[in-house]
Simulated assay, not measured.
Amino acid sequence: MNSPTSTATMAPPAVHLIDVHKTYPGAEPVHAVRGVSLALPTGSFTAVMGPSGSGKSTLLSCAAGLDTPTSGRILVGDREIGSLSSDALTRFRREHVGFVFQSYNLIGHLTVIDNIRLPMVLARREPDPGWLAELVAAVGLTGLEDRRPGELSGGQAQRVAIARALLPRPTVVLADEPTGALDSRTGTQVLEVLRETARRLGQTVVVVTHDPRVAAAADRVLFLADGRLVDQLDQPTVEQITARMIALGR
């Protein structure tokens, strides 16, 4: 199929994958990603779906530079991340790639505000106080800045993770099942925070999800099966997404 591109904007891609393959060696090699090419426009909100084992999380990890593809090229902004050394890639990810995990990955002894600031502390950069305050307010954490993760609900903890990912103003924010550990109501609220905050900031977001309701919030849904990009929907409805997933044998 053709590489996904935006009909709403001619901005250069925030993320560009070119014939990406990922194979895990073994007695029976696992071909997790097979020849995926796609271009995600700046400011777009994309969902990635597919049956279990279709390669969704592997694709996201490769795009984030957390895993190395067996072959192919990955560009984030104008940088080909496969050409970077390990140290340079780590620095690049801190500044240009925000990642939101299902398990939040917050540091238990740090306060909410210090968890949000962590990527910039590691990068030895001082966040703009005005931007930090705006972001805290945007994700609904005002008044909770001094709490620790153990004092937060799941929805609040995921909001901290979203703010942490957005703070460095990265080129792209990648989220792996960001609402998977939350109840339906809280998950909907957290998704709305991610979508609206990112949209207001012109941020590029990619979400891996199994939930058609989450995917329906995206501008575009990409469908994977057996490691291949097999279909896409623009401005989809929950019903359209559900039908495609059934056809793919979810």
Rank of each mutant, 00 (worst) to 15 (best):
residue 131 W to Q: 15
residue 186 T to C: 02
residue 162 I to H: 05
residue 127 P to G: 02
residue 180 G to R: 08
residue 129 P to F: 00
residue 140 G to Q: 04
residue 192 E to K: 12
residue 195 R to L: 14
residue 150 G to N: 08
residue 146 D to P: 00
residue 200 R to Y: 02
residue 208 V to C: 12
residue 171 T to W: 02
residue 121 V to Q: 14
residue 164 R to A: 02
residue 190 V to A: 10
residue 204 T to K: 03
residue 119 P to G: 07
residue 161 A to L: 09
residue 152 L to Q: 01
residue 169 R to L: 07
residue 133 A to E: 12
residue 140 G to N: 00
residue 209 T to V: 05
residue 197 T to D: 10
residue 173 V to T: 09
residue 159 R to I: 13
residue 119 P to Y: 08
residue 206 V to K: 05
residue 123 A to V: 06
residue 152 L to H: 03
residue 140 G to L: 06
residue 148 R to K: 15
residue 183 D to F: 09
residue 156 Q to F: 05
residue 200 R to V: 10
residue 200 R to A: 15
residue 183 D to K: 05
residue 146 D to A: 13
residue 130 G to E: 14
residue 200 R to P: 08
residue 151 E to Q: 15
residue 114 D to T: 06
residue 145 E to S: 03
residue 193 V to K: 09
residue 197 T to F: 12
residue 196 E to S: 14
residue 202 G to F: 03
residue 194 L to W: 07
residue 178 P to N: 08
residue 151 E to L: 10
residue 191 L to P: 06
residue 136 V to P: 05
residue 116 I to F: 11
residue 157 A to N: 07
residue 152 L to V: 10
residue 195 R to H: 15
residue 116 I to D: 01
residue 196 E to H: 12
residue 162 I to M: 08
residue 168 P to I: 01
residue 169 R to Y: 09
residue 164 R to H: 03
residue 118 L to I: 05
residue 208 V to P: 11
residue 128 D to Q: 14
residue 195 R to D: 14
residue 126 E to Y: 08
residue 205 V to C: 07
residue 141 L to N: 04
residue 189 Q to R: 13
residue 140 G to P: 02
residue 127 P to Q: 00
residue 162 I to V: 15
residue 201 L to H: 12
residue 138 A to Q: 06
residue 168 P to Y: 11
residue 205 V to L: 07
residue 162 I to L: 13
residue 131 W to C: 01
residue 191 L to R: 02
residue 185 R to G: 00
residue 162 I to F: 03
residue 170 P to Q: 03
residue 123 A to W: 06
residue 202 G to R: 10
residue 135 L to D: 00
residue 198 A to I: 09
residue 177 E to I: 13
residue 204 T to F: 13
residue 141 L to H: 06
residue 154 G to C: 03
residue 138 A to K: 11
residue 165 A to W: 12
residue 160 V to S: 07
residue 139 V to L: 12
residue 148 R to Q: 12
